[in-house]
Design a protein around this nucleic acid. Structure first.
Lengths: 114, 114
DNA sequence: TGTTTATATAAAATTAATTTTATATTTTAT
DNA sequence: ATAAAATATAAAATTAATTTTATATAAACA
């Protein structure tokens, strides 16, 4: 029962739904998400923790980055996450994606300089 | 987005999941649920309100009773509710059903007396 | 009509979740 | 080695959700 409650609780917050939507197309590190949502890092880490605790995302450490991606390893979570992604209008996360893309461009610039 | 959040929030509470499970086989009035869960009436009304706000149950007034039942009128809610009902072990609500049955027996007794 | 029953709701008290601020840890780069 | 970057976590502050207590309303009954 608690496992189920944790999943629903994790999904009942705007910031966390925005994070899931950002992770729709793959893995991101914490700093990507901070840049995209334009909120402070400890807050992002907190929400990533809630999502991970509920088993909706998983992480791996790569160098000094911690990369997160969706974990839809069972049919129930898969359906839930698919529903969420489908139901969230693009409108809601338009600005998030803009900021993320801008952040990526700057990353690329830096890489080209090296 | 808020609608989705309200649905998940409604589902992220033990009392409310127990109520949904009680409503699995049909309509119940508030006093049935109070008897089954063995918690005070304003608390039950509060949780019924949360579930109804989220569109997961609906009510109709009949005499002095307010009867509630599951509202799975769209495919997404239907799936969610089905998943919840399937995932909640009978164990969790065994006592609830016992108390509900005892309450029903007493109701019948009273009717027979009349 | 006055009383009882079923329910809702408001207000206060309590508990839980979130946010912010400050700091610690780990990894990489200088 | 030192400094900087990325992240986590602890503590405090804030906000939100839940629970309790008290009361109001409406329907049915004596």
């Amino acid at each position: 029962m608690q496992e189920l409650i944790d999943i629903f609780k994790a999904l009942s917050d705007e910031t966390r739904l925005r994070i899931l939507k950002l992770l729709e197309h793959g893995e991101l590190c914490v700093c990507d998400i901070v840049a995209a949502l334009d909120i402070i890092q400890p807050k992002v880490s907190f929400h990533l923790g809630v999502l991970q605790n509920a088993g909706l995302i998983k992480s791996r450490k790569q160098g000094r980055w911690m990369r997160y991606k969706i974990d839809d390893s069972d049919i129930f979570k898969r359906f839930l996450i698919l529903s969420v992604l489908e139901k969230l209008s693009e409108e809601v996360i338009k600005e998030d994606k803009k900021r993320l893309n801008k952040f990526f461009e700057n990353k690329d610039d830096k890489l080209e300089v090296l």
